[in-house]
Every structure is written in C-alpha cells, then in structure tokens.
Design a protein around this nucleic acid. Structure first.
Lengths: 120, 120
DNA sequence: GTGGGTACTTACCCCGGGGTGAGCGAGCAC
DNA sequence: GTGCTCGCTCACCCCGGGGTAAGTACCCAC
C-alpha cells in the first residue's frame, strides 16, 4: 500500500512534509522564521515589534515550541532589565531555506483566490 | 520599517510564504497534494482510501477549497454511479514541487521533538 | 511614589476547523 | 422489494489554538 506517511507508517513512502508541517504549524511560525532570518539575534520585544499583531503569549509559546523543535536558539543574559536573544539554529536556517520555493510559489502564482478579498 | 508582509502591507518585503500557507493551511491539504501527485486522476473514493483517517466531509471541503485556489482540477462525468476525477493543475504541480525541499528537510532533520512521542 | 521598560506567565474566553453520523438520488444485482 | 456503490451535503458537537487583559520581579528616571 502507498498510504503516504502518516506518523509511524511502516511502508517506504516517506514524504516528510507532515513532519515539517508540524514544526511550522502555528499561525506565526513561518513569519518568526523569516523575521529571525532577516534580522538575526533579536530580542523578544524586537520580535514582537517585527510581527505586528502577534501577542506576547503567542510569541512566547511559539518561540518555546520552535526552541523545542530545534529551529530556534535562545540565549538569556543575566541583566536587568532582562535580555534574551533569539536566533535560528542551523536546522532553522535550513528550514527557512526550504521554505523559499514555497514563498516563491506564493509570489509568482496567478491570483486565484484570497487576494481579491484581502488586499482591497 | 520591515514588518514582513502581512496581507496588504505596502512595503517591499514580500515573502509570499503566508500566501502559500493559506493554500496549504488545512490538516490534510499537503497530503492531498502529495497523493494526487503520486496518483494522478483519482476519484473521490480512491482519494479517501489513500488518506486513511480523513473524513468525507473534510476531504470534500478541502478539495473544494483547493479547486477554488486553483491547485486542483475537478472533472465530473455524467454517469451512474457518479464518477468524479481529481487532478493537480499546473499550479498545483508547481506547489507540490515547491513543497519538496520542505519534505526533504522533514526527512533529513535531526530528530529533535515530536518523533519520540509518536513513533514509539 | 509613579511610571516605564524588560520578558514573560496566568486565567479566561471565543471561534472555527475538523470529527461523527445520518441522509440523498440514481441505477444495478438479487 | 432490499441492499449496495458513489459522491457528496447537512446538522451537530468538541477541542484547542489563539486573542485579551492582567500580573510579576527587577531597576532606573523623574
């Protein structure tokens, strides 16, 4: 059978996309990735300002998940006021690179749906 | 300011990823894409069998959205019992291609989190 | 003392994506 | 007649991801 690769599927049809989708499966994760790619070593507040609309709670939880997923690196300095710097790990950089074709597709695609209702 | 490209953002920083994320932003969409790439011109029931766990409602709604997004093509034959064939459009094929680096990343990545809890 | 800035956490609410189960309309096998 | 297949739709429920607002601990400027 070729049933794609649901997690733990024993057959050879490994597509790996769902693994990646779990890592970037958060409303802001690809944007965080992109932001850290464009602006390396940002602090929490800077990141929040780079992502207008994100809430502190969501930014914090997304960063923690991405850290646990090994795509974001967190360094906390013992200072007052506190300073924490976030950056992409090597794996995070590779993930961001892997997202570029997708971004290119999004940019080049014929406007089918979605845009006419949003960018009015 | 470089605030990434929230929809309608006027500055030049177009990353396009969020456009793509909207199109593939459904629990089963990348799997449908992959399935139609591996098995072109499948009927509804075949697709359902290719994606164990998906419900008819979700498969139907996903397919409709993907059709509206221009990545899936639907052909209905006037037969009894009814026959409907789904395939990828050119844009859908390109989207699937654009997902391959992501899939490769998912396959090659060092096991960080997620796997040890699932494929145990 | 008040306010501001840092990097968060906590409690709460809400909406919608997705799962469940049933129904439909046509024809064919029996 | 009953039942089966096919490709859906409809009504319903439920959970959790994400938004809102407030609180925390520390120090500095005023």
């Amino acid at each position: 059978m070729t049933t794609l690769n649901r997690p733990g599927a024993p057959d050879g049809h490994v597509c790996g996309i769902d693994t990646a989708m779990e890592v970037i499966g958060g409303k802001w994760k690809v944007l965080i990735l992109w932001a850290l790619h464009e602006h390396p070593y940002r602090r929490f507040g800077e990141l929040r300002r780079l992502l207008p609309g994100i809430t502190e709670k969501v930014l914090a939880s997304h960063l923690r998940e991405m850290e646990a997923d090994g795509v974001v690196h967190r360094v906390s300095y013992d200072e007052v006021p506190p300073r924490v710097e976030y950056s992409l790990t090597e794996d995070g950089v590779r993930l961001n690179d892997a997202l570029q074709p997708l971004a290119a597709w999004g940019r080049e695609r014929p406007i089918a749906r979605g845009l006419e209702g949003k960018a009015g």
